[in-house]
Computed example of a mutant assay.
Amino acid sequence: MTKTNILIVEDEEDIRELVKYNLHRENFGVLEAGSGEEGLTMVERMTPDLVLLDLMLPGKDGLEICRILKRDERTQDIPVVMMTARGEESDIVTGLELGAEDYIVKPFSPKVLAARVKAVLRRHASAPELAPEDVLRIHDMVIHPGRHEVLVKERPVDLTATEFRILHFLARRPGWVFTRYQIVDAVHGEDYPVTERSVDVQIVGLRRKLKRAGSNIETVRGIGYRFRDK
């Protein structure tokens, strides 16, 4: 049986060795990179099943590496788990906005790390595929899941994978109101660890990218969000 390969992108060798040791104990295959640039090369060469990405890296930092991975069609579906010594909410929110699937704050328990990795892989394997024929046309907007494409008045809009899923989820049920946690559950799975603030940031990003069409995503105070009905 082929092992699941995890790429560790971490510049501190001691931490990298500790993470590698504990992942090996869980029967994962492990790849290593000591910098962001080396990590990008490894992803291109080896196509890992998941990337454990430190945020404090020399050269291109972890957020920039995450941004590059999630904007590339060839790598955007590889799950990214951020490792950071910074526990501030702003760092976590930024990483999630860029498309990271999860985060873990140093110092962390090896058992907790293994559990988070397994949970992300499990969600990734069980995530429902969007039907290619399920094209939505609403409010001068066309949402094409098969192409991962959004057009507003026939002009393409560049969205991250998470932004696309949130938009598609809301637009499929115009007029329905969803809480932030309902949105998280629909996009990432019920055990996805996230703050309410991170959902708000995703919505702000969506509205900004959609420009005038972003007004179709309405805030329902005290509850959550809905896509404006026809």
Rank of each mutant, 00 (worst) to 15 (best):
L7M: 12
E12Y: 09
E12S: 12
E12A: 12
E13S: 09
E17W: 13
E17I: 13
L18S: 11
L18T: 12
L18E: 08
L23F: 08
L23H: 05
L23M: 05
H24I: 08
G29Y: 06
L31K: 05
G34Y: 12
S35P: 10
S35C: 09
G36C: 06
E37N: 08
E37I: 06
L40A: 13
T41Q: 09
E44F: 02
P48A: 09
D49V: 09
D54N: 11
M56R: 14
P58A: 06
K60G: 00
D61C: 08
R67C: 00
R67S: 04
L69A: 03
D72M: 12
D72T: 14
T75D: 10
T75S: 15
D77E: 14
I78A: 03
I78P: 02
M82D: 01
M82E: 01
M83R: 10
M83H: 05
R86N: 06
E88I: 14
E89G: 10
I92Q: 11
I92V: 14
V93D: 10
L96A: 10
L96I: 08
G99T: 10
G99E: 07
F108E: 00
P110F: 10
V112T: 12
A115E: 12
V117I: 05
V117S: 03
K118L: 02
A119N: 12
V120S: 06
V120N: 07
A125K: 15
A125T: 13
A125F: 09
A125D: 11
A127G: 04
A127D: 02
E129L: 02
E129S: 04
L130H: 01
A131C: 01
P132N: 08
D134N: 12
L136K: 15
I138L: 14
H139E: 03
D140V: 02
M141C: 12
M141L: 10
H144P: 00
G146R: 06
H148K: 06
E149D: 03
L151F: 08
K153F: 01
V157C: 01
D158Y: 06
T160D: 02
A161Y: 07
A161P: 11
T162I: 09
T162M: 04
E163Q: 15
E163N: 15
F164L: 13
I166A: 07
H168E: 01
F169R: 08
L170R: 11
L170V: 05
R172P: 00
R172N: 06
G175L: 00
W176A: 02
F178P: 03
T179A: 04
R180G: 13
R180A: 13
R180T: 13
Y181D: 01
Q182T: 02
V184W: 00
V187N: 04
V187W: 06
V187E: 04
H188E: 07
E190Q: 15
T195G: 08
E196Q: 14
R197K: 15
R197L: 11
S198Q: 14
S198N: 13
G205W: 04
L206T: 15
L206W: 15
L206M: 15
R207L: 11
R207S: 14
R208E: 12
R208N: 10
R208L: 05
L210N: 07
L210D: 03
K211E: 03
A213D: 00
G214H: 11
G214V: 08
S215R: 14
S215P: 01
G222R: 04
G224K: 10
R226C: 03
F227I: 05
R228S: 00
